[in-house]
């Protein structure tokens, strides 16, 4: 299960794609992350992460409709693959394990 590791930003992107369920493309993903996490995301950083995740097989993409504001360019919708789901699960599980292992006294501080 070594290959299921996700980076912090990768995890955020995959989760956001999941949240947007069916409406996840460049603009909405960026908006969603910015809204929920209150941080600025550059198109460059987002796109490169999306492509990387797609290459790794966590995401799949499909061209969708276009809009007049897009200059005739199609939207590229992303969805989480089964493998992607596994990766998020894995990350979450590992994170939980870490939380569980944490002695209560540490958090009391």
């Amino acid at each position: 299960m070594k290959n299921l590791k996700l980076g912090e930003f990768e995890e955020i992107v995959i989760l956001t794609v999941g949240i947007l369920h069916g409406n996840a493309y460049g603009v909405t993903i960026k908006d969603e992350i910015e809204k929920r996490l209150d941080r600025q995301v550059s198109v460059g950083a987002l796109q490169i992460t999306l492509r990387r995740l797609e290459k790794k097989g966590y995401l799949s993409s499909a061209h969708g409709e276009t809009a007049p504001t897009r200059g005739g360019r199609p939207k590229l919708f992303f969805t989480i693959t089964a493998y992607g789901k596994k990766a998020v699960e894995y990350t979450r599980q590992k994170r939980n394990e870490l939380w569980d292992a944490l002695p209560p006294i540490v958090l009391d501080l």
Partner: peptide
């Protein structure tokens, strides 16, 4: 292969 949808996104942002 990446160009067309990225350009679309950028234009959408731009318009907004």
């Amino acid at each position: 292969e990446y160009h067309s949808d990225i350009e679309g996104d950028l234009l959408e942002f731009y318009a907004r």
